[in-house]
Computed example of a mutant assay.
Amino acid sequence: MKRLLLLGVLLAVSSTAHAIVIRHDVDDAKYRVPATEFPALVDMPGEGHGALIAPQWVLTAAHTLPMHGDLKQVVINGAARDVERVVVHPGYRTLPQTLIDQAMASGEAMLIVVFLASGDDVALIRLKAPVTDVAPVAIYSGTDEAGQIAKILGKGATGTGATGHSPSGPNRTELRRAFNTITSAYDRWLCYVFDEPPQALPLEGVLGNGDSGGPVLIERDGQWLLAGQGAWKVVQGNVLTARPGRYGQVTCNVRVNHYRDWIERIMAEPAQTTAVG
């Protein structure tokens, strides 16, 4: 249930059969891309993504991590990479079962939105060996994300803005990319709205279930930089019956530059085998 509540199924759900929810009036083939579109994309086990930000480090949304057991491997550029340790941000909190139960009973989940917005949904993964066949993505250093056009990628659930997508999956299929205009950026989060045509961008879209941790990229001087990672979305109405991914819904993403100091501090620490915060 935690994955359902994080980018898709209940009201503020962070999607944790295809990828990227697209315009209803544009051919799906225009959204599909090969892995070479973003080689630094990391596939978490089962569903969810991350991004290679240094030869031995992956950044992801904390809720993509396995709920039970250790993370043993991730996949980058089609190859399994062994994990040495995982570092979860100390401000990350798992969703209380009480809030889940209340939302399941009533269909109202506003306090889930409040809870998700107040946490630090970030984790770093140190690999046992440096990745030598993929160039890491650089982090966007600006604070002017609002108003910028972002490129988003993922292999999670798909559908169209007219109907949304099924909250029950499948949540891992083909790679797609889409674009959206960032509408707000402050503190931990940057967000965008899935606009309906004709206001939408030519290849407008949003991340779907299974795209949590997926990259939100901003282009600067011809280079796509990592500005955000998929986290959660706001689904209006009864969260038990509403479909995620419809036009008008807001998707919020981890604002990566907000965590730059923490990221650099953790990566500079001596290698160790235990997880730290």
Rank of each mutant, 00 (worst) to 15 (best):
M1T: 14
M1G: 11
R3Y: 15
R3K: 15
L4S: 13
L11D: 08
A12W: 05
S14C: 12
A17V: 08
I20G: 06
V21Y: 09
V21T: 14
V21S: 08
R23S: 04
D27M: 08
D28V: 12
A29P: 11
A29S: 15
K30R: 14
Y31L: 10
V33H: 05
E37Y: 08
F38I: 10
A40T: 01
M44L: 15
G50R: 01
A51C: 07
A51Q: 06
I53K: 06
I53M: 09
P55S: 13
V58I: 15
A61I: 00
A61G: 09
L65I: 09
P66F: 09
M67R: 15
H68E: 07
H68G: 00
G69W: 06
V74W: 04
V86N: 11
V87N: 12
G91M: 05
G91E: 05
R93W: 11
T94K: 11
L99R: 07
I100F: 04
D101R: 09
A103C: 12
L111G: 01
F115R: 02
D121V: 04
P130M: 02
V134E: 02
A135H: 07
I139W: 12
G142S: 15
G142T: 15
E145R: 05
G147M: 05
G147V: 03
A157H: 05
G161P: 02
A162V: 01
S166N: 14
S168N: 15
G169R: 03
N171T: 11
E174L: 10
R176H: 12
N180R: 00
T181S: 07
A185V: 08
C191R: 01
P197D: 00
P198S: 13
P198A: 12
Q199V: 13
Q199E: 13
L201C: 00
P202M: 08
L203C: 06
E204A: 14
V206F: 04
G208W: 09
N209P: 10
N209H: 12
G213T: 01
G222E: 14
G222V: 14
W224P: 02
A227I: 07
G228D: 01
G228W: 02
V235E: 09
L240E: 10
G248E: 05
G248D: 04
C252Y: 02
C252S: 09
N253C: 00
H258E: 07
W262F: 05
I263S: 05
I266N: 00
I266F: 00
V276E: 10
G277L: 13
